[in-house]
């Protein structure tokens, strides 16, 4: 039997808007993935949990407007441990369309703004992970 896709979800920083990330967590588990909601995580703690739990995907949400700063910090924390490429990295939250490209340039693989159907996130995870394992 195939191993379930494992996803770590967390909130970086202080932004307490939790509706989005819990909604996504439920949608991903309904789609057959295993999700771990880590709440607020300091970034070192997040990397540690991601490695320990051997997840395939890391997702986080920012609703405070500090999405660019936190995206940079998350990528840096992963790079510092040399494990950036071990994970598919996703961000969700409230940010303008014009920031999607900068977020991707920072190194986020999947960028999901307000109004995204959760099915789009599920599809993205499946297709990206499939193409990655193909490359391996």
């Amino acid at each position: 039997m195939d191993r379930k896709i494992r996803v770590l979800l967390f909130k970086p920083g202080l932004d307490g808007h939790w509706r989005g990330i819990i909604t996504v967590s439920k949608a991903l588990s309904e789609a057959g993935m295993e999700t771990i909601f880590a709440g607020f995580k300091n970034l070192e703690g997040m990397v540690e949990t991601a490695l320990q739990e051997d997840v395939d995907v890391i997702g986080f949400s920012v609703h405070s407007g500090a999405h660019l700063e936190w995206a940079r910090a998350v990528v840096e924390a992963l790079e510092k441990e040399g494990c950036r490429d071990d994970f598919l990295l996703l961000i969700g939250g409230v940010f303008p369309q014009e920031d999607h490209q900068p977020l991707k340039e920072i190194g986020i693989d999947g960028v999901f703004g307000p109004g995204t159907p959760t099915s789009a996130i599920v599809e993205f995870i499946h297709s990206e992970l499939a193409s990655r394992s193909h490359k391996k």
Binding site: P12, G13, L14, D15, G16, L43, S64, A66, W70, A73
Partner: peptide
């Protein structure tokens, strides 16, 4: 802002000045 709402100073620990 988030810091004021939660009653924190921006220099309490690294990274939160982003808020």
């Amino acid at each position: 802002d988030n810091l004021t709402t939660l009653a924190l100073d921006p220099d309490m620990f690294p990274g939160i000045e982003a808020e």
